[in-house]
Amino acid sequence: MNVGIVAQKGNTRATALAEELREQLSAVDASVTLDEATGRSLGLDGRPVETLGDCDLIVSIGGDGTFLFAASGADGTPILGVNLGEVGFLNAVGPDDAVEAVLAEVAAVRDGDQRVRVVPRLVAVGDGWRSDPATNEIVVQGGRRGRGGGVDLEVRLDGSLYTSGHADGLLVSTPTGSTAYNLSERGPLVHPSVGGLVVNEMCPDEGMPPLLVAPDATVTVTVNAVGGWGASGGRLGNDDGTTDDAVVVSDGKHSYPVEPPTEVEIRRAETPLRIAGPSSDFFEALNKLD
């Protein structure tokens, strides 16, 4: 039994809890693998987070950002989140209950009766490249937003044209990510029990409202050009007359520059996210957004 531990970087409380969990897991004959940053904070060896997928369980200690970081290397391994943050949509276990919850999860894995919640992730595919899976959202946008930025795009849903025109970009969100970037772009909240993907244009010149589509829908984004239009009808760009490439961003961390004209296909990833432990209270977490 091997448990991976990922603690929020620079958080002494998270580091102390990681050390306590390491000691408690050792007492029940479970080995522990730390990610590199957690290992450094404890003066021990660690591994890149991308290699933790061979663990039987991963414990994330911190906020939702730490959970997303751990998920980037989980590759389907169940993750139990300990919430030291403010909101906690993904982290349902409080720090005072962390040891008990982790040991109970270890026992469940060993007994073969572990129960996990399976939530979808997204992947973007382009010409010769493929993004890392995204738990929250994938964004296709210009190299910059606002005046002189943005992209000319066409959006198709399972092959049918939904919208076209100029916008800062397009965001495709999972239900999990509906409370994150999607919400700041005036997209709808989606309860975790509701399947589907949110397709949300970002500051379009003339656009369609956000749309909830089937969870297995394929969103195809054709990026035709980058940059805005000036009053004279010319394409605005940088001061030197150039324009930036468009960029595809996975969960706000992994970026993939693309040169128009190009086509990006966004769809559900083959490997979902598996969340271990108790469920968080969606509406309680919503109240913490204020």
Rank of each mutant, 00 (worst) to 15 (best):
D152F: 10
V155R: 05
R156W: 01
D158W: 13
G159I: 14
G159Q: 05
G159P: 09
G159R: 15
S160Q: 13
L161G: 04
Y162G: 05
Y162H: 11
S164R: 12
S164E: 08
A167I: 07
L170G: 02
S173H: 10
T174A: 05
T174C: 14
T179M: 15
A180P: 13
Y181N: 13
N182G: 09
R186F: 01
R186N: 14
G187A: 06
P188Y: 03
L189E: 02
V190A: 09
H191L: 14
S193M: 09
G196D: 01
L197R: 02
V199P: 03
N200G: 08
N200W: 01
N200S: 12
M202K: 09
E206M: 12
M208Q: 11
M208S: 11
M208D: 01
L211C: 10
L212M: 10
P215L: 06
P215G: 07
D216I: 05
T218L: 06
V221Y: 00
V221T: 00
V221H: 06
T222A: 07
N224K: 09
N224W: 03
W229L: 15
W229A: 12
A231E: 00
A231M: 08
G234C: 09
G234Q: 08
R235W: 00
D239T: 10
D240N: 03
D244V: 08
A246C: 03
V248W: 01
V249S: 02
G252L: 04
G252R: 04
K253E: 04
Y256I: 02
E259A: 13
P261I: 09
T262D: 06
E265R: 15
E265F: 04
R267W: 03
R268C: 09
R268M: 15
A269I: 09
A269S: 15
E270G: 08
L273G: 06
I275E: 03
I275L: 15
A276D: 12
A276I: 14
P278L: 15
S279L: 15
S280F: 08
S280C: 12
F282Q: 13
F283E: 10
F283Q: 10
A285Q: 14
A285W: 12
